[in-house]
């Protein structure tokens, strides 16, 4: 039928155009996104990640608590926020659950050499040269022993990203104010409220795994999240950016169902009116 032939031509033209401006253009502009490396292949695995949590706590109190708090175990940071901002331009995070959030080998290597582990030569925390590998094992064991189990995506995001990023629409403000962050990192880290709409899930996973994967030379540090933490963070970011997804998907079915029904009725009416017209 002629009408169907015309419709077919329209559909083919529209599909070619759509392919060109969406999938094809995006593949040319962004190339292939690298796969995330959740095992941190480049991180040496020879530093112990187990030891005595009691010794670990002692070492933590003497070596880390001057800068970091650990609320889960009642440890307050030795430094008030204002002082840490003047010293580091970033507030050192509370480490209550970091033992569950970060990959243990990454964490051990990070304590030894933060600049190399994070791929950020200007990373504000000094290397803990005074600690032997064995000491680091004790500290990691301690950090793992105090963490809460089954953290939510929001908890992980706030603890791992909250010193730099705000999530305004969730009423989460970064621990560090904007000006010092800009001085430290060269730019204010973007708000994460709708980042799930600006970036797709695969991109976020690769980026968080190692920011250098997608933005070479960026000042956002590699943080060393485990695969599970990364996925929870990404799911959380995706979900807060699009809170009405379920409502949309259900309503869509009703609306389209109704319109299909209307199409049926109008088709019947057309048939009736056009019966005598040739």
């Amino acid at each position: 039928m002629k009408e169907l032939k015309i419709l077919l031509i329209l559909i083919v033209l529209v599909l070619i155009g759509y392919w060109g401006i969406e999938p094809y253009a995006h593949s040319v502009m962004h190339g292939e996104v690298k796969q995330p490396d959740h095992t941190y292949k480049d991180v040496p695995k020879n530093i112990p990640t187990t030891g005595d949590p009691v010794k670990g706590k002692e070492l933590f109190t003497t070596n880390c608590a001057s800068c970091h708090g650990l609320k889960n175990d009642g440890v307050n940071p030795g430094m008030d926020i204002q002082t840490s901002i003047t010293s580091f331009k970033v507030v050192p995070p509370d480490l209550s659950n970091i033992g569950a959030i970060l990959d243990e080998h990454f964490l051990a290597y990070f304590i030894k050499n933060p600049q190399d582990a994070t791929k950020n030569p200007k990373f504000a925390m000094p290397p803990m040269a005074q600690l032997s590998d064995e000491d680091i094992g004790h500290v990691v064991a301690y950090l793992k022993s105090v963490t809460k189990k089954d953290l939510t995506g929001k908890e992980i995001t706030v603890e791992a990203c909250g010193r730099c990023h705000s999530i305004k629409y969730q009423k989460v403000l970064s621990d560090t104010p904007k000006e010092p962050l800009k001085e430290y990192l060269g730019k204010v880290p973007p708000d994460l409220s709708v980042i799930g709409k600006a970036k797709n899930v695969e991109y976020l996973e690769t980026f968080i795994n190692n920011p250098q994967n997608t933005l070479p030379g960026t000042s956002m540090p590699r943080l060393g999240l485990t695969k599970e933490s990364t996925e929870k963070v990404v799911t959380y970011l995706d979900q807060i950016a699009d809170p009405h997804r379920d409502q949309r998907n259900t309503l869509g079915i009703w609306v389209i169902g109704y319109l299909l029904f209307m199409a049926g009725i109008t088709f019947a009416w057309k048939k009736k009116i056009w019966k005598n017209i040739h």
């Binding site: 609306v255 319109l259 109008t266």
Partner: peptide
């Protein structure tokens, strides 16, 4: 007569349109 056909075309168009609104809006 003309509008009888028009309503049918409109209904089919709206199915396509709201499919985009709900499920393919990113473009």
């Amino acid at each position: 007569v003309f509008m009888a056909k028009e309503f049918f075309v409109m209904s089919v168009f709206l199915v396509f349109f709201f499919y985009l609104v709900f499920y393919q809006y990113k473009f």
